[in-house]
Design a binder for these strands. Structure first.
Length: 416
RNA sequence: GGAGAGGUGGCCGAGUGGCCGAAGGCGCUCGCCUGCUAAGCGAGUAGGGGGUGUUGAGCCCCCUCGAGGGUUCAAAUCCCUCCCUCUCCGCCA
């Protein structure tokens, strides 16, 4: 949610941002609605004030004067109730639209509507020296560490079994990532994956991306598509102390995604599945330094990918391809020899005050409370990272060489 | 799943219909005092919204005592629904 004072003072900023995102927005209707609801509120509150004054005088009155006062106060109470109902109606009408507006995009976010419009920021590693060109599915099947067919029988398409050394490697990655990030001030956390609707509204996934989320209707709970949801909501309705910032967390959780509308896309292997585990960084920070914090998260992601020896490039994601809550987003795209192209394996977003406003997360300053900025970034998306490791570290004989840094955690040097 | 208790400001804790957004204490901030520290004295210390405006100075008003409804001229106080916490029993990874 963006700041309502912007609508009143500089609507052209909202208009410009929406135009860059390529979405239509009727600001005049919104402005008109806003003015009407405020007028309605002012007049309702005035009735309320008069009613209270009258009511307070009653305790000091007696006899017929008291009867008259009660009658008058009763009338005022009825008027107020009606006026308040109208105000609430207008508020709701306004809010229903306002909550669908995406965050303002950052000046420095790349222009354009699609993935192709993203701007490459940097490259690392050499993708041109493959030791083999099988993709992760073939390698995984040959080595007996991946099973998709049986997963399909059990759960349907877009599920997989990680077996043996590959299952071990997941936990090696988790331990490795925690060890890398904790010294940087990230507190490890295992968050809930079932959350209430307010956490999803608060993080901006609802109402817009409702169809991507698994719902457990019987209990009014939802399976998170990323632990960003439960990490952001960790401090909802709180006022943090200024000294505590930045407050950094690294969460490990399973993620559930319906992948609605992705039919036929990335159907091989475990590249795009309904369920995967992910280690996610999350930061609550001072709004003045959120750009630096964003760079910081990206740097941590690069540390991890580099440590694993996976060639990659960093892209500044085009505004049209941004989530509604993000002002700016960097993706790391790893080289996948099996696909012979770069594919997204991390994503870090600066959501500025968009989620903080919805979740009511503020911090204390000497002159009042201000909204924090929130940022999220993938540390390790296990499934895709395993795929990237397998493909980039495959040997000519079909075995996988485990990256040096993971060996102490995994307890083996290769998968064969 | 069954039975009971309870949710008040940063924290503890009073308050069962009428100037209560709320006693008292702790904590914190500022000032005074004390040759350090401790103690003491005084003042301040919730959040959101609306109006006005020299636009975050001030002033005025409204809302919020877990959330939402209701009763009443008037609700932290009475009623209903929901959420959460705790205790006991049952069940269970």
């Amino acid at each position: 949610m963006i700041d309502i004072s912007l609508l009143r003072e500089s609507p052209e900023i909202i208009a410009a941002s929406c135009e860059r995102r390529g979405i239509d927005i009727d600001l005049e209707t919104l402005t008109d609605l806003d003015q009407r609801r405020r007028r309605a509120r002012t007049s309702a509150e005035d009735m309320r004030r008069r009613q209270k004054e009258m009511g307070n005088s009653i305790s000091r009155l007696e006899g017929s004067a008291r009867e008259d006062a009660i009658a008058e106060a009763s009338q005022l109470a009825d008027d107020y109730k009606a006026a308040l109902a109208e105000t609430d109606r207008l508020d709701q009408k306004f809010q229903d639209i306002w909550i669908t507006l995406p965050n303002l995009v950052a000046e420095s976010a790349a222009d354009g509507m699609t993935e192709e419009d993203s701007i490459e920021v940097s490259r690392w590693g050499d993708p041109s020296a493959p030791k083999g060109t099988k993709d992760h599915l073939d390698l995984g099947l040959d080595l007996g560490v991946l099973d998709i067919e049986r997963a399909a029988r059990v759960s349907g398409t877009r599920f997989g079994y990680l077996l043996g050394d590959l299952a071990r490697l997941e936990f090696a990655l988790v331990q490795f990532a925690f060890d890398q990030l904790e010294p940087h001030g990230f507190k490890p956390v295992v968050p809930p994956v079932l959350v209430r609707e307010e956490a999803l509204i608060g993080t901006g996934f609802f109402p817009s991306d409702r169809q991507q989320v698994y719902a457990v209707e019987k209990d009014d709970l939802y399976l998170v598509g990323t632990s960003e949801v439960s990490l952001a909501a960790l401090h909802m309705n709180e006022i943090l102390s200024g000294e505590a910032l930045p407050l950094r967390y690294v969460g490990f959780s399973t993620c559930f995604r319906r992948e609605a509308g992705a039919h036929g896309k990335d159907t091989r292997g475990i590249f795009r599945v309904h369920q995967f585990d992910k280690i996610e960084m999350f930061s609550f920070c001072n709004p003045d330094i959120s750009e630096e914090e964003h760079d910081f998260l990206l740097a941590r992601e690069e540390d991890l990918v580099q440590a694993l020896g996976i060639p990659y490039r960093v892209v500044n994601v085009a505004v049209g391809d941004l989530g509604g809550s993000a002002a700016k987003k960097f993706d790391i795209e790893a080289w996948f020899p099996g696909q012979e192209r770069y594919r997204e394996i991390t994503s870090t977003s600066n959501t500025t005050d968009f989620q903080a406003r919805r979740l009511k997360i503020r911090y204390r300053t000497d002159d009042g409370n201000r909204l924090v900025h929130t940022l999220n970034g993938t540390a390790v998306a296990i499934g895709r990272w395993l795929a990237a490791i397998i493909e980039n570290h495959q040997q000519r004989d079909g075995t996988i060489s485990v990256p040096e840094v993971l060996r102490p955690y995994a307890g083996f040097d290769s998968i064969s």
